[in-house]
């Protein structure tokens, strides 16, 4: 086997090089571990700002009554909850997550809040979405794409199930453009985050993976190019909190 072929057979799990099927299992392990404390940790780690990032995503989605929405890697259902209100009785929101534990936590949480009727739950891999072509008006993936093994394949799969004119919104950690902010952010990510994970969720390794996976994730321009490559047009992105997070938007032609 040549080096090139060997490289193609490998992907990364944080800073480690692993085989693609190993990454899936390892990512699954991380989310099985953090599922129960996911919301608390999100609030703690971002100091609540993740709610604003998600709010902006909702604003840009242009979702309205009767729309079909797919929330990939929907986790504990923050976006699904808002979309459920926007699409109304005539619309539908599908909360999809590859991880059974996250899906269970999300489903239980939404049902407890009385959000039923227009929400469906599907355990699905973003790389091979189990939906017919041209199904959804809007697809969102919030803080999920960096955990996907084959991102290009996932983007193509999303483009396939979107209706023409439908939009994809990718909310994901990205690259800061201010050196000082980058230094502070690195210190926070690699020192404080694992310590918080250990203290609150009893798991520092999962949060070390979180920091590492953010650094390995493509930057704003690269992700935009990947979206174009997957078939999206009119691609744009909005940096938030100094580029710590970016929201990419693409339209299916």
């Amino acid at each position: 086997m040549t080096d090139k072929v060997r490289d193609q057979d490998k992907t990364h799990f944080g800073y480690k090089d692993v085989k693609p099927d190993e990454k899936e299992k390892m990512v699954a392990g991380v989310f099985h571990s953090v599922a129960d404390s996911y919301d608390v940790m999100n609030d703690l780690m971002s100091m609540g700002v993740h709610r604003l990032w998600k709010r902006f995503t909702i604003e840009l989605s242009a979702v309205r009554k009767g729309h079909q929405v797919l929330d990939i890697a929907g986790g504990t259902g923050d976006l699904t909850k808002q979309f459920s209100r926007l699409v109304g009785d005539t619309g539908r929101v599908v909360l999809a997550d590859i991880n059974e534990s996250m899906l269970r936590v999300g489903r239980d949480r939404l049902i407890d809040q009385g959000i039923v009727g227009n929400v469906e739950y599907v355990q699905a891999n973003a790389e091979c979405l189990p939906f017919p072509e041209n199904t959804f008006d809007c697809i969102t993936i919030a803080f999920g794409l960096r955990n996907v093994t084959d991102k290009a394949e996932a983007l193509r799969s999303m483009c396939r199930v979107l209706k023409p004119g439908g939009r994809l919104l990718v909310l994901e950690f990205s690259k800061t453009n201010n050196p000082l902010l980058t230094k502070v952010y690195d210190t926070y990510s690699f020192s404080l985050l694992p310590a918080m994970g250990k203290l609150v969720a009893g798991d520092s390794e999962s949060y070390r993976y979180l920091a590492e996976s953010i650094r390995k994730h493509p930057d704003q321009k690269t992700l935009e190019a990947m979206m174009k490559e997957a078939g999206f047009v009119n691609t744009t992105y909005h940096n938030m909190t100094g580029g710590i997070v970016a929201l990419h938007k693409g339209i299916k032609p």
């Binding site: 700002v49 709610r51 604003l52 709010r55 902006f56 604003e59 938030m240 909190t241």
Partner: peptide, 9 residues
């Protein structure tokens, strides 16, 4: 972000 925060409030 400030506008989003203000509107949320």
């Amino acid at each position: 972000m400030m506008k989003t925060a203000f509107l949320a409030f």
